[in-house]
Amino acid sequence: MSLNRKYIPIVVTILLFIIMFVAGSFRYTGFFSLQVLMNLLIDNAFLLITAVGMSFVILSGGIDLSVGSMIALSTMVSASLVQQHGWPPVVVIPLVLLMGAAFGSGMGAIIHYFKIQPFIVTLAGMFMARGLCYVISIDTITIDNSFYTAVAQTKITLPGGSFISISAIIALIVAAVAIYTAHYTRFGRNVYALGGSEQSSLLMGLPVARTKIMVYTLSGLCSALAGVVFTFYMLSGYGLHAVGFELDTIAAVVIGGTLLTGGVGYVLGTFFGVLIQGVIQTIISFEGTLSSWWTKIVIGLLLFIFILLQRVLSARGSSLKR
């Protein structure tokens, strides 16, 4: 085996995506087209953006449960400010992003300085953000602002006749920037080091506090951005948007081959993890007779397989070390 062991999970993820896509293409007519592939990106743009932020959190050895609620809060704040207060989108969107980043950094600071588990702090953040949605309004706020509808309806035609939405392009840019950040910047290395061992990073003199807070800030920013994209997608703000979304995101990251103990994984894997979730949904909608709950069961099954795979691989790794 010339393949480096650390690449096995990500190779499995990519192979699985290809196999599922090919299987779908053979089974259903009209499945094998560039447009279906593009639709995967269009329909899962917000999932991709959130999952990218989550990848950094998980790589650093933490977890962020607040992402789904943050998305809902972003849609709610955008909708309320644009629709009910008549603010221009140019002001609202940066404001929402800033809010997400501030929210994330607040959670990061509590996690770091008071040494409370990320699970509990982000759980509180999740309740808080979801509750704040209802403080704004209990009902759906529909957006008919010209800027939002224009962005939502814009289709960028690609050579070959297929099209892609602005949201998908934003998601692709986010993923590309994240891959660069994770592997070619000092911050990225710090995140991996922190996930490997916090104690060692501290002893090595790495900026643990800054990195940790930055990671949660980044995740907050990403989920706020995902919220903005979600607003384009749904054209409404609602407190029940993206309920349970944090689990989809974590599942995408795990299926992408990232170890939940931190320190191991690739943002590219997350990208394919998101696409695999998209393919499952597409296959189920093509099948027609299957109900939506099969998505959950299949994703649960995939989670199980990937966790087992990681377990086997890491067990082999540790036995080698001995």
Partner: peptide, 12 residues
């Protein structure tokens, strides 16, 4: 629905 905000503060 406000329960959630209160819960958040209680947890923290």
């Amino acid at each position: 629905e406000i329960t959630l905000v209160v819960k958040a503060f209680v947890v923290l």
